[in-house]
Amino acid sequence: MSNCLHLAIPAGDLKIAKKFYCDVFGCKTGNSEEGHWVDIDFWGNELTLHQSDERLPKIRHDVDMGAVAVPHFGVHLPEKEFQALKQRIEEANLTYLDKPYRRFVGSKYEQETFFIEDPNGNVLEMKTMVNPQVLFEVD
């Protein structure tokens, strides 16, 4: 694995957080230290969940479609995988922070996205791009 992102976040209760990331998001675990932290394979990236009492503060920033929660993180998924994730979220009866919607419709940056909170209140934005190859193109 090369060029993988590593992100460590406060996760609250590790057992609850691990259940969310593995059972709902379909991620797998890696290295861990019982009661302290666990590595999650977050679509090829290393997400380290730390046992914690604190939560990250959130604010909203205005962007094209409204105010989004910051900080947040997530991944871009292929369409089929994105739709399967939405299905797992709905089957788990979880509530979206911002429901799935399409942005930049008709442009080369068209995408479907949603925001959801993990059990400790960390915000995730999950996306699928119509044309993923244009992500870093400069106009």
Rank of each mutant, 00 (worst) to 15 (best):
M1P: 09
S2G: 06
H6T: 14
L7P: 05
P10F: 13
P10R: 12
D13L: 13
D13I: 02
D13A: 12
K15G: 12
K15C: 14
I16T: 13
A17H: 04
A17F: 00
F20A: 00
F20M: 00
Y21E: 04
Y21L: 05
D23H: 06
V24L: 08
F25A: 02
G26P: 09
C27R: 09
T29A: 07
T29D: 08
G30T: 03
S32R: 11
E33Q: 07
W37P: 11
W37F: 10
W37D: 10
V38P: 04
D39A: 05
D39R: 07
F42C: 00
G44C: 01
G44H: 02
N45C: 09
N45T: 04
N45I: 05
N45S: 01
E46S: 07
L47A: 08
H50L: 12
Q51T: 14
D53M: 14
D53K: 14
L56K: 10
P57E: 13
M65G: 13
V68I: 15
A69Q: 12
P71L: 10
G74A: 15
L77S: 08
L77K: 02
E79T: 07
K80C: 12
F82A: 04
Q83P: 07
L85M: 12
I89K: 00
L94Y: 09
L94N: 14
K99G: 08
P100Y: 11
V105C: 11
G106L: 00
K108I: 12
K108E: 14
K108M: 14
E110M: 08
E110I: 02
Q111K: 09
E112L: 09
E112I: 09
E112Y: 10
I116H: 03
I116Q: 02
E117K: 15
P119R: 10
N120H: 01
G121Y: 11
L124R: 00
L124F: 04
L124E: 01
L124P: 01
E125W: 00
E125A: 05
T128G: 06
V130F: 07
V130P: 03
N131K: 08
Q133F: 05
V134F: 07
V134S: 04
V134Y: 10
E137W: 06
